[in-house]
Amino acid sequence: MSLKSKDLVSIRGLDASDIGLILETAAGFKDVLGRDIKKVPALRGKTTVNLFYEPSTRTRTSFELAAKRLSTDVVNFSVSTSSVVKGESLRDTALTIQALGADIIIVRHSCSGVAHFLADNLGASVVNAGDGTNEHPTQALLDLFTIQERKEAIKGLRVAIVGDILHSRVAKSNMYALTTMGAKVRLIGPPTLVPEALEELGVEIFSDMDKGLRDVDIVMMLRIQMERQGKGFFPTTVEYFRNWGLTPERLSRAKKDALVMHPGPMNRGVEIASDVADGHNSVILDQVTNGLAVRMAVLYLLAGVKG
């Protein structure tokens, strides 16, 4: 079994059977991560390059570990110390990295569409690790994996995605992935941050959090992206927390066994209360662990697609 494309640019390019294959493969890799020797020789001799134009610790580390545990060589291309500061274009940088023999290029960039552009211009496999406000496909896949681990079937679940939907690539990828797998998605947040047009994708929109959380199986919190704010989308973080922060009382509207998720890094006291983040409904650290298995599965499967 293989994926159809050499790249993972967006969830929109995947159908339910592709997503199913990735999740199933990830289950095999989760086993590997539980062993003393957490490394397999599957991609020996391949080279992976992390090309990150935006700060990231967890995603970059997760991809780096995933690549290393598959036995590929990993190069971290740090933009701040590279020729990019000398004015090299994105395309030239990517072609140079490819000429050095990279088989897989993992890219994060503040502009939407960068991963797509590189995928079209390079023979190497390109994995989108987040492009602007567009998509972050591996985050959605690891979220699905985490849900499936606890709830078995994704189909029919009610999932609330809460917060800054407008700027969130995590929310978009999750929306596509969850609806593809048959979940019912609700978006909750201040009207300034939840575009009404998204209703066309078959999701429900709520601005009242207490109503929106009623009887949901999954509460997916988003990080308030301070670096993308400052345009007056909401008055203050204190007021934001009062209306859309996830507190134990709010969580009680959801099903008793609802899962609380967050892609990290968390702003405790802004979008989520510490009691909830550390509470027994929280699977936030599972998400991190599962991210490794899912990224291994993605790299492994992409390496099997012959160009």
């Binding site: 079994m1 293989s2 590997v32």
Partner: peptide, 14 residues
């Protein structure tokens, strides 16, 4: 890996 058309399916090791 280099000569196969598709990646082999990864199953569980238990």
């Amino acid at each position: 890996f280099a000569v196969r058309k598709e990646q082999p399916v990864v199953r569980r090791t238990e």
